[in-house]
Design a protein around this nucleic acid. Sequence first.
DNA 1: TCTGCTACATCATACGAATGACGAAGCCGG
DNA 2: CCGGCTTCGTCATTCGTATGATGTAGCAGA
Lengths: 343, 343
Amino acid sequence: MAKSVVNAGSRSVTSFEVADAAGVSQSTVSLVMSGKAEGRVSNATQLHVQETARRLGYAPNASAQILRTGVLKVIALAVPNVQQPFFGHVLLAAELAARERDYSVLLVDTSDDAGWVDRLVGMIRSRLVAGCIVYASDDTVERKLRPIRDKILLVESENPDQSGIDLDIPGAMRAVVDHLTGLGHTRIGYLAADYPKATFRRRYEAFRTEMSAKRLPIASSWQTKATFELEAATRAATSLLERREITALFCDDDLLAAAAYRAARAIGIRIPEDLSVVGFNDIELARIIHPELTTVAIPADDVASASVELLLGQLDGGRDRKRKPTIISLPLHVRASTARHVT
Amino acid sequence: MAKSVVNAGSRSVTSFEVADAAGVSQSTVSLVMSGKAEGRVSNATQLHVQETARRLGYAPNASAQILRTGVLKVIALAVPNVQQPFFGHVLLAAELAARERDYSVLLVDTSDDAGWVDRLVGMIRSRLVAGCIVYASDDTVERKLRPIRDKILLVESENPDQSGIDLDIPGAMRAVVDHLTGLGHTRIGYLAADYPKATFRRRYEAFRTEMSAKRLPIASSWQTKATFELEAATRAATSLLERREITALFCDDDLLAAAAYRAARAIGIRIPEDLSVVGFNDIELARIIHPELTTVAIPADDVASASVELLLGQLDGGRDRKRKPTIISLPLHVRASTARHVT
DNA sequence: TCTGCTACATCATACGAATGACGAAGCCGG
DNA sequence: CCGGCTTCGTCATTCGTATGATGTAGCAGA
């Protein structure tokens, strides 16, 4: 009497129905399904239950499991602007790392509205997600996250000691300035990202520190800001370059470097003969534009997998908070966009 | 194995505790919190309960709510390779569209392993997510998704009639071929994406159809395949271009077009003077490389928001399945990489 | 005083799985 | 024939919320 089949209709199969169909109790089904049946259920029964469950298309209801066990394997990832290739990498790597530990990843985009922090806090309070990795936060955000800070891992926090993960910005900027001065450059421009993020501020500070240490000049006319919108960035770069005062240019992001390329081409400045350019991030674009871009690489995979690891550790580890942040070092990839300055 | 318990901050507040603190019953708290209190709870009590809840930091437990109500506002998004900028756009737009209807988005990356389909089916069966949008599926995938097909929305399915959303590939290819032939090109090459996806096959079929309709030649030596890995793609493009048989080249993706640019530059072929290039996707890169790339645009935002809309409709609408797919048309953005062919 | 309302609030149960506390056999040794 | 030990299962409760059913008090009308 094969009673089939329960099509994929909307009502879902419960452990009670499996129990009925298999002629056992709900407890037995639960024990078998959760793999805790050893020593409590005979092998024959286990097989029978498994077969019945399969036949009925049974899958334990996640909400019920979570409610009962308190175990929730979903984390959120709050990233600014997923469409930036760099964050795409981060997202991908984080998903992979999470999946390896049986976690799923919920996306929270932080780019367009201010409501995301409250939504995130709500998600965590209501236990829709167990915790969250937050990239590039700022003070306002961190204040709101305070009450749930043991469920949050900050990457590149405003306050470095709050970070779980931090990047070796000073080291990277030292490498950049060393590289450029090593090539004979002294008038180094700065195309900054016009976003109020800690990471950009810290890059600029590190730059100034390095330049001072080397007693090199910094002029405000050698510097400007731009968003990542291509046309706007190109205009900003153009107005900077057409003064023809600098021989090298650091850009806060590879996209800005690409804009600088466009600007340089438009006004007849050759890269690297007339201008050396250094970017930041090392996204694929860096090798696509011509000449290939010298840039500081952020190892997105390492950052993401380390974040996941730390967050999950923090979530069940409990009280080992006052750990120092993990520092990720950022290699400078030297390519064809930088060359010796000839006087 | 001692079970570590009781750390101060981690126990979460329940509606019973709020009820106690406020001197009312749990039911009352629930009614107030869910906004269904009108006519059942006096205003004074409502305010008092709300205040108490706020003071204790109460948030309803999501699992319990879902279990009780059966309402689950999380959907999954299965996309191949989030790090491709195009899918970054899709993801972002989908998250936004979902959020507007109070849904959250769970990411499923389909690029690196084959296990994702089973994981996805499990998520849906166990009601961890309510439904899923699946991009660029294939037959194998669709077979496995069959049992839960009313919770899935396919975008660009292998079998067009299964799709909820489809792209007007034939229209796009017609525009491409019209554009190139209008410029006097007859020997048109094809740099294909080496991935077994329906979308690429359909592009190629549409290409052949158009070329036949115009009685233009197609030669296998004018065509090759490549993955999106930059170096490999550049090599493939190089071997295609160094034959110097074609005057125009269609590329399955803007990244491949970028590789073609590199190849062309390396062997001294000028774009667009010696070779016109057309891409596909219109990612930001298309305007960054020089000359700016003529390319078929996929309106990622429209695709994503329409997908979300359709899926959510399908999830609660229930039985209006046999709807025809929504067709999204793909404009050709003509830029500087295509020019008249001079004999 | 009794019926009929309205306005508030509570009771009790269901959602579906997990799990500690209990059996019920079967078997052994004495 | 009885106590004790395994082996195999089941019972009953718990997780936290939502909600139909059920009061209770107060008041108006008759």
